[in-house]
Design a protein around this nucleic acid. Structure first.
Lengths: 124, 124
DNA sequence: TCCATATTTCAACGATAATTGAAATCAAAA
DNA sequence: TTTTGATTTCAATTATCGTTGAAATATGGA
């Protein structure tokens, strides 16, 4: 992924309400959520939310489709995955000995609600 | 990881020069780089860089130590790992069917310089 | 058609962030 | 101790960001 694209995706997530919006969309899954539903759930003014959603959309982090009067937003898992891959690359590249620090996926059990994935170091 | 901590870490990385600084530090490994060396390498004014480094440090993304007249900065792999774990949690939680989209670690070979890790879906 | 609902657009405002030049601090060398 | 080099701090400026109220657009129902 291009450096500047990574920056804009990070910018997309680097704000309290936008990260909350994205998280809500991730939790909602492929059905997504209508803009109004998000606004109510997170207590954000509709026009403010619209601006944030537009930033998320331009960052490629969400998609939208119209359904009747509503506009349904969904999280884009593929681009989040690309961003994660970029960040992992940044760390692992040429430095195998530190990759272990990048896989603490079972190090913080309370916040992990899913039956953990096994540690998967970038190199052995 | 706490939500607000995740936001501040993302803010730390969500800026052109800060992401470049962090990347340079990651590549430099545990030896780190002196502030001046970073400034020269990235053509950033020393005082501007100092402000950015201070933001990265407060975000917990870099450490610093004095060595003679220089101040050596190093990337913190542990906190980056925590941030990645947080983002992965956000996506995988309760939605196993989309986790595969989060592990395109061998999907973009040109940008991966290390002998790829195997795909490791959050759930099977 | 007229009305109500859902969302976006626009302009303006206040807040926050990034950059700059000058001065200050700190450590090493002369 | 004076000087040089490395980095930070400070105050000021500019740019960018987030929010708001009002108006505009689009859709579906009466």
């Amino acid at each position: 992924m291009e450096f500047s694209v990574a920056v804009s995706r990070l910018v997309g997530l680097a704000q309290e309400s936008r990260l909350a919006v994205f998280r809500a969309l991730v939790r909602a899954g492929p059905d997504g959520l209508a803009a109004g539903a998000i606004a109510r759930e997170l207590s954000i003014a509709p026009n403010t939310l619209s601006a944030q959603l537009s930033i998320l959309a331009h960052a490629g982090l969400v998609d939208s489709r119209r359904d009747g009067r509503s506009i349904i937003y969904t999280a884009r898992f593929d681009t989040l995955g690309e961003l994660l891959a970029f960040l992992i690359d940044e760390c692992c590249d040429g430095r195998p000995e530190f990759c272990s620090a990048l896989t603490p996926f079972d190090a913080d059990p309370p916040t992990r609600r899913a039956p953990g994935r096994q540690a998967s170091p970038c190199h052995r």
